[in-house]
Every structure is written in structure tokens, then in C-alpha cells.
Design a protein around this nucleic acid. Sequence first.
DNA 1: GACTCATTCTTGAAAGTTGAACTACATAGG
DNA 2: CCTATGTAGTTCAACTTTCAAGAATGAGTC
Lengths: 165, 165
Amino acid sequence: MGDMTEPRWLTDEEQHVWRAYLHATTLLEDHLDRQLQRDAGMPHIYYGLLVQLSQAPRRRLRMTELARSAKITRSRLSHAIARLEKNGWVRRENCPSDKRGQFARLTDEGMEILRQNAPGHVAAVRQALFDRLSPDQVKQLGAIMRVMAEGLEPSDADADLPWLR
Amino acid sequence: MGDMTEPRWLTDEEQHVWRAYLHATTLLEDHLDRQLQRDAGMPHIYYGLLVQLSQAPRRRLRMTELARSAKITRSRLSHAIARLEKNGWVRRENCPSDKRGQFARLTDEGMEILRQNAPGHVAAVRQALFDRLSPDQVKQLGAIMRVMAEGLEPSDADADLPWLR
DNA sequence: GACTCATTCTTGAAAGTTGAACTACATAGG
DNA sequence: CCTATGTAGTTCAACTTTCAAGAATGAGTC
């Protein structure tokens, strides 16, 4: 079972790429967080929740569904929605078909906040990313990110591999 | 001054790439956080601090320097070092040449933790990233990340553009 | 139906993060 | 010197995230 062999360290090139990755991704995340905190009064992840809701049918989603698509825990979502509800941007609604369930619904006020901030946010993403990459690089980035996600996606296969959890 | 024109929205392809980016990067960050929290008892960023210290001369760095190279605020670093100090992995030392200054120094215990966890961490990074990408893709990723960082780097030029802050 | 087990969502406390205020020391100009 | 201003690091309060329960409902089995 145990692997006694020397671990395969990263090559020089891999180390450089890894550092560049960490550097760039944290800078971008910080940049977007600050931009949205300043302009919209919420962090990037909260903004993402509103976006998801805005694109859902009837502007609402079940809590679990929203958590899954935003890749956060249900607990974290509960707190986040509570905060957004205080802001008046989201409202909770009971699910008639499952009494345990709750919908989070985007309010008109929430929609308005989104309208006001979408241009600035898109501009920030453009300026940081798409306006700086060549068309080829955009394609490459897409391909690379898809490969990464495949390897990390919580797949159904994991259900058969409980020891990996 | 104000730009009254319609904002340039993202194309379909750009949207897909952006989503893939957010998806993949959050999955990877979560994955590494969990791996290190489980194996080493600290989040990824804290581990990164120990790594930086381990590579510095005399295994120590000034607080500001460490904060800068880890891309976090000095405030956050103060808290983080306080926690790592409690664990016995880092020790604070006064700076003789500047009485305001503090060094954070990696202790032997901290170095040992690093030794124990480096193989597992490298394996996780490999498995998630480098073992899944072609050599070309690794190069492409490096180039893309460097371009991103350039655009976000807090450059000296910003000092002349206070209105951008 | 009653029992068991899974699922949905919430809660509360601990831990972590942020931004601003604050202390202490350093540096430059008169 | 002395004053003004800048820098290093910490601290506080507000906020966010995590982790471990916990309450309520659903679903399968006998």
C-alpha cells in the first residue's frame, strides 16, 4: 500500500508555473473582491450568487442547488443568504413540494443592484483577463481549466471510493 | 469623463472560459485547503507562509516582506503568524536595525512539519494539475498567468494615479 | 404505521479576514 | 534639535467562513 519511493518533485518549469498560477489567481480574486466590495457592497462570491439567481427560472433556486452551483457548503450559503436577505436583495420562500426545502429568490432590488454593477464587473474582468490575452490564449485557458475541473470534480465515481474522502 | 456607451459584454466563448476559470480555480483551492487542513492542520495560505520562510536566508523574513510575497495584508499576516506561533512553527524576533521591525522565523518544528507534508502537497498539485496537462499546456498556462499578473501587479505607476485607488 | 436512515436547511461557536485606527519608531527638512 | 511626515506592525470591531450539531421532513422496509 504505502509508497516508499521518493516523491516526484516539481521540475523548475513546473515550479515557476505553479508560482505564477498562485500569484495571478490570488491577485485577480483580490482585485474583483475589492472592486465589488467598493461598488456593490458585497464580496465576489455574494455577487456570484445573485448572478446565478438572476439566470434561474423565476429568478429562484433551491438552497442545495444554489450551493452546488456556487461550489460552497450549504452552511455557508445559509449565512450568505441571510446577509443578502437583510440587504433586501434576496427573499426566502418555502418549497411546497418538499417542506424541508427553501427557495432563494432574487428580489427586484437585487436585480437592480445587479444591473447597476454588471458593467463595472464585466469591465474589471475584461481589463484583467480577456483584453490582455490573445484569442488563442483564451481558447487555451478554457481548455486547461476544463482539464483541471475534470480531475477535481466530485464525480459519482467517488461514491465507490469512500477512502478518498 | 464618464463613459456613456454600452459596456462590452463578454462573448459566448469568453463567458464559458470565465465560468470554467472560476469553477476550476475554486475547486483546486478547496482541494488543496482540505488536503493541507487534514494532513498538516493548516490552510493552504499558512502552509505557503512556512514555505516562503523555509526558503529565505536564515529561515526568516521581515513581516512586511513576507506579507508582500504572500500577497496578503500585514493585518492578516499578523493574525496568521500569531496562530503559527501558537503552534510552535514560527517565532517572532526583533529586528536590531529597525526597532519597529519584526522577523518571522521558521522553527525546527515548523521545518519538520514542512518536511512531513511536502510530499503529500506536491502529489496533490501534480495530480490536480501537472499530471493532467500536456507539456504545451503547462507552458501556455505559465504564459497566461504571467500576462494576468502583469495587469494586476501593484506597480509603481499607480503611485502617479491616485484616482485609481 | 413504526422504525431506520437519508436529506434539507439552520444554528452557534470558533477561526479567519478586512479595513481603519493606533503605537512606536524612522527619516527628512528646517 | 524639532517638527512633520512616513513606515512597521498590531489591534479592534465588523464581517465571513468553517465545523459540528441539531430540527424537521422525506423515503424505504418490515
